[in-house]
Nucleic acid binder design. Structure first.
Lengths: 337, 337
DNA sequence: CTGAAAGCGCTAACAG
DNA sequence: CTGTTAGCGCTTTCAG
């Protein structure tokens, strides 16, 4: 068997037709007598013909691939999202190429241009906030559909797919208030991370609405276990009667758990904790973490659906999709009497 | 600004040269006067020229992409490996396309042919054990370099990149024996999972070599937390003086931890446990898990290095790379007095 | 050193 | 319904 080197013209020759006829036959287009069609299909399958998608893409302008340009696939949020994106892409006959930027602007743009060079039909990227205006402008002008996983500045030309972050923050707040907590803190990310910002904002707004609560203390830091550890450590230094804390993502919460442990404090006995994400680990950690669940897989799938739709229609308007979240109650919170 | 639609011939026209000259200039090949070269490069950068890699690939036969065809990117082993692979690919100017087969033979082959259609220069796949002979033969005959992450049957034509699984199993055994354990069990995967099999085999051999130990009990099940839970649950039912267990991967170990907890047993007080992988969660779980560390990132990087090397030289022989492992001691084992 | 010509494998009008 | 004719954008002999 030829090692994948069977071309259309070979099929055509063997089947005794012209390559254009063979092409039509293979692509199931109108205008081929059934008999001829079957003959061509037979030859193709017998010879193990595989169309060269590079050649096809060159002429059709469609590469049948979409790019996933994120900070790091090892971040569980992106891992699940990637799987959702890949499944959706595959179902539509698309491939997904993976790029990890580490939020390095140079890397990001290098990847972006490389994706352009391969003529991907769209790209999913987590954020655009760390790039300079000029780069963002160039990406917009590339004409390639782009969907962001982070709320962009106003009047952005890009599509977005997001969770209801402020709603999720509110969910956490309402839960804690219902449990009787009145003095709380939020372990937030660095300012500018819109997803985390929105969660904190939603939380703050909801406790204000509850009225009989103190204004929560907000600490800022890196949005990782390390950052969470640092923030919690600091918080424990001057607790001032705080009985509950909201971490704007699970990684922060995990760091906070360890910091509490290190300080000899127990969760939830001494302090209640709620996270955000519902990463797999959240169920396994000790104590199992109460957290706000995001539908990561679905976010990824929705992103590629938008992209594929837009790749079809030239100059489509950006689309925006917001997914609900839900509180999953586990064992990291207790009621205050 | 043209939306990425600048072609070589346009560059050539503006620079006042022939496209072939422009091509040579851009590709830094010999045979272009420096002055002309600079002019072409200037025009190209001014116009924001991006070569169409589909067109280039069509003629050179090199797509500059490699495929990663694994069971599921959400498996932490593959997540880290994917990152290593992607970094190595990117460093060499390659892209990585992600495919999740769920170990479904149909899906696997569908992805494989789709990758072939895009003319990827090589593919990494976790295993080939679940496919039928004919499919394996076809993949071999495709001529595309392939590297496996699992020990294949003898006389396989594929390259491999593996951890020293039997060595790792032995490491676990020696550690436990040194701690004074004499009656042990191993929570293995299903027969046929060569990586897990090898770990169990290494473990068994090493305790036999220790002489004064009982032959370990080996249980089999799914290699996941669920499977680990089931196996541990069963084991606890008839412990017979067993004081330590070796799980052939961390997921199994996590399930085992929970099963112990459910049964009111404490780790490591009542029973010692060592895992295999050193997944991120291993450090975070309670108790922190003593486990055998694999260098997942490096495995991924090595796999693409092999592929890229082989893509260069036609008909290269398969290569085999084995990575060392190391025991990371945490808190899930105790010494027997 | 540079241009002309050919062609990678395929699709897309346009005739016949 | 089918074959002819043109390329897609690029690289690569091969002359000049």
């Amino acid at each position: 068997m030829a090692t994948i080197r069977v071309t259309l013209s070979e099929i055509a020759r063997v089947a005794g037709v012209d390559v254009s006829t063979a092409s039509r036959a293979l692509n199931a287009r109108y205008g081929v007598r059934k008999e001829v069609r079957d003959r061509v299909l037979g030859v193709a399958s017998r010879l193990g013909y595989r169309p060269n998608l590079l050649a096809r893409g060159l002429i059709t302008g469609r590469s049948q691939t979409i790019g996933l340009l994120i900070s790091d696939i090892r971040n569980p949020f992106f891992t699940d999202l990637a799987r959702g994106a890949e499944d959706a892409a595959s179902a539509a006959g698309y491939d997904l190429v993976l790029c990890n930027s580490d939020l390095d602007p140079d890397k990001h743009m290098k990847y972006f241009w490389s994706l352009m060079a391969k003529r991907v039909e769209g790209v999913i990227m987590n954020s655009v906030a760390f790039l300079n205006r000029e780069d963002v402008r160039q990406m917009a002008e590339s004409g390639t559909p782009i969907v962001l996983l982070n709320r962009p500045p106003a009047r952005s030309p890009f599509s977005t797919v997001l969770s209801d972050n402020v709603g999720g923050g509110a969910l956490a707040a309402e839960y804690l208030v219902r449990l009787g907590h009145r003095r709380m803190a939020v372990l937030a990310g660095p300012r500018g991370q819109t997803n985390l910002d929105d969660r904190a904002a939603g939380f703050l707004r909801a406790v204000q609405a509850a009225r009989n609560c103190a204004e929560p203390l907000v600490l800022r830091g890196i949005y990782s276990a390390t950052g969470g550890h640092a923030m919690m450590h600091k918080l424990i230094g001057s607790l001032n009667g705080i009985t509950a804390v909201f971490a704007t993502n699970d990684a922060i919460a995990f760091g906070a758990i360890r910091a509490a442990l290190d300080a000899g404090l127990h969760i939830p006995e001494d302090i209640s904790l709620v996270g955000f994400d519902d990463v797999e680990m959240a169920a396994i950690v000790h104590p199992p973490l109460t957290t706000v669940r995001q539908f990561r897989y679905e976010l990824g799938a929705a992103a590629v659906e938008i992209l594929i739709r837009q790749a079809g229609s030239k100059g489509a308007l950006p689309e925006h999709r917001k997914f609900g979240v839900e509180l999953v109650e586990r064992m990291s919170c207790r009621a205050i009497d």
